[in-house]
Design a protein around this nucleic acid. Structure first.
Lengths: 119, 119
DNA sequence: CGGTATCCTTTCGGATACTG
DNA sequence: CAGTATCCGAAAGGATACCG
């Protein structure tokens, strides 16, 4: 098994449910930054458990950084896309271009999400 | 939920286990073509059930075509990457470039799989 | 050769409640 | 606000056997 292949590993966490949406949501934020509760509300439907898991994974992969302001009350935590994280946005963009080229007839997408997508 | 988003849908089947390896294996074949048993052996570890499922999904998505030669005995079946399927290889290539830029220190990959990878 | 059918395990994600 | 802890159900994938 080629579980050591970097491409496979990358795809592995990128393809987990919610991950892409989290990255896109951070990308939309000012300074590519969002707070935990902002992500929760913006994404909608994600439970805190899963959101927390994904954020940890992405932090470990260097795709985002976690910044805690412990002086604030309640504690203020911000998540920010790193430079490499922005690289992932490029990847998503390529996928979108592929989709637009080969899946144009996907009406639901054309009319809804992708049209308002920041990509 | 944006299950109608084309990007999400695309990522959804691309990220299933084995899918990328199947696409890469087809890419390696002459004329981007491989037979069922060739895929099985080349990939290693995949069960016929899963391989069959993936091939069907990818055929439905237009990423590969299935060609059966019923005159042969036993029946000869070939799977070939389509033009849009080759586009997916490009996507993988971009991901690899991202990985090489940001994950160079992944020694196992550098020494093994990616070095011999056709990408 | 190119699959399908069955069954079983494991993994993932959802629901909910609770805490510093 | 920003999570963690527990429990549970669904779904994905693996093992194995069999068939045209």
């Amino acid at each position: 098994m080629q579980d050591t292949c970097t491409v496979n590993q990358t795809v592995k966490y990128l393809t987990k449910k919610w991950t892409l949406l989290i990255i896109l949501e951070l990308y939309k934020g000012q300074g590519y930054t969002r707070r935990f509760s902002e992500l929760r509300e913006a994404i909608g439907g994600i439970t805190p458990k899963i959101l927390s898991e994904r954020l940890k994974e992405l932090e470990e992969e260097g795709i985002l950084t976690r910044n805690v302001d412990a002086t604030a009350f309640p504690v203020k935590t911000e998540y920010t896309l790193t430079e490499s994280g922005l690289g992932i946005v490029d990847v998503i963009r390529i996928i979108k271009q592929w989709a637009l080229k080969w899946k144009i007839d996907n009406i639901p997408c054309g009319d809804q999400d992708c049209k308002v997508c920041v990509l």
